[in-house]
């Protein structure tokens, strides 16, 4: 049908978020850029809201070859390319400036190319901010506050290990069921970035949000190599350029969304704690970090991340992670 009907190359791009989300808006910018770069010979059709499946399923569709591109959390890529575990580890980045320097530098480039053997290729990182704990009954000001608390985590071994190291009980529950689970006490809390906390309306139930920023797991824009290998060098260049441009747009929109979300939940009466001592949290996960660093690949990447320097302007508040 459509893909072969004319000179226009149609790329199908699926993602799991709704059409108001910075990711979707970033993708619309990408589609527009690609359209103008290619003078209309390349077109991106976006399938939002999990229409074509969960992030894991869409990655598989890329491998099968029936979907061109998708956006996934790098934690989902772990199950395909184990290198990505390093981005799910707690307190690997000193601050936002350091994180962007890493992801847009040599380490980021290496990671984006890492899934090539798995028929996947990263095109760009999208910002997904930093994740922090939100709870129903008491704020998590220090690790001991997590004692005996059931915390919802994503389906990721790293996330479970981290919550366990901090003293909580990790409980994997699907995102869609989380609201009622919080409401009904199936779990005592969860962790996520401010826009997700706000848009999911979890703040209606979980009244404490402490910005300890334990992890900063980015999103990745991925293309299947089945599609990538069919593109001419010129088309690849256009697609890469459009991806980079869309990442810039998405980053700006994300920052705005984060600020809006924090203001909005505070206006709703949520107790947002921004001034948190992260050192005790970072100390609590040291054992876990040592264990993960036994994998030479992870150790090498952690080292490369540590030695990456943020641009001078950045305020580098030292955290316990590099102590």
């Amino acid at each position: 049908g459509c893909a072969e009907e004319s000179d226009v190359r149609v790329i199908r791009l699926g993602h799991a978020l709704d059409t108001e989300h910075p990711v979707h808006l970033g993708m619309e910018a990408m589609a527009a850029t690609l359209d103008s770069l290619s003078s209309g010979t390349m077109r991106i059709d976006i399938y939002p809201s999990q229409q074509l499946g969960s992030e894991r399923v869409m990655l598989e569709l890329l491998q099968i070859g029936s979907l061109g591109m998708t956006k996934v959390s790098s934690s989902v890529l772990e199950n395909f390319a184990p290198e990505f575990r390093v981005l799910s580890l707690p307190f690997v980045f000193r601050d936002d400036a350091h994180r962007f320097a890493v992801l847009e530098g040599a380490v980021g480039d290496e990671l984006l190319e890492a899934p090539e053997p798995y028929r996947l290729r990263g095109l760009a990182f999208y910002d997904a901010g930093s994740r922090s704990f939100y709870t129903v009954d008491t704020p998590v000001l220090e690790p001991s506050d997590l004692m005996g608390q059931k915390i919802r985590v994503q389906e990721s071994a790293t996330a479970m290990d981290m919550v366990r190291s901090l003293g909580g009980s990790p409980t994997p529950i699907s995102w869609g069921e989380l609201y009622t689970s919080l409401q009904q006490g199936v779990v005592d809390g969860a962790e996520n970035n401010p826009p997700s906390f706000y848009l999911s309306r979890h703040y209606e139930v979980a009244r404490y949000y402490v910005l300890n920023e334990h992890t900063a797991v980015p999103d990745v824009l991925v293309v299947g190599t089945t599609l990538w290998d069919r593109l001419s060098p010129q088309e690849r260049g256009w697609l890469q350029e459009a991806s980079d441009a869309s990442a810039e747009v998405q980053k700006r929109l994300w920052r705005e969304a984060t600020e809006e979300a924090l203001e909005a939940v505070e206006a709703e009466g949520v107790e947002v704690v921004t001034d948190v001592d992260k050192a005790p949290f970072a100390a609590a996960v040291q054992g876990m970090m040592t264990q993960y660093a036994q994998d030479p690949q992870i150790a090498r990447l952690l080292d490369a991340i540590r030695t990456t320097q943020a641009p001078a302007a950045a305020d580098s508040t030292r955290t316990a992670a590099d102590a």
């Binding site: 459509c2 893909a3 969960s54 598989e60 070859g65 029936s66």
Partner: peptide
Amino acid sequence: ALTLSVLPGPAVTTVAQQMAT
């Protein structure tokens, strides 16, 4: 219907994958 848009190999694989998932 899927073979209208996708080659037969990926099409049957996709339907199989959708059945399982």
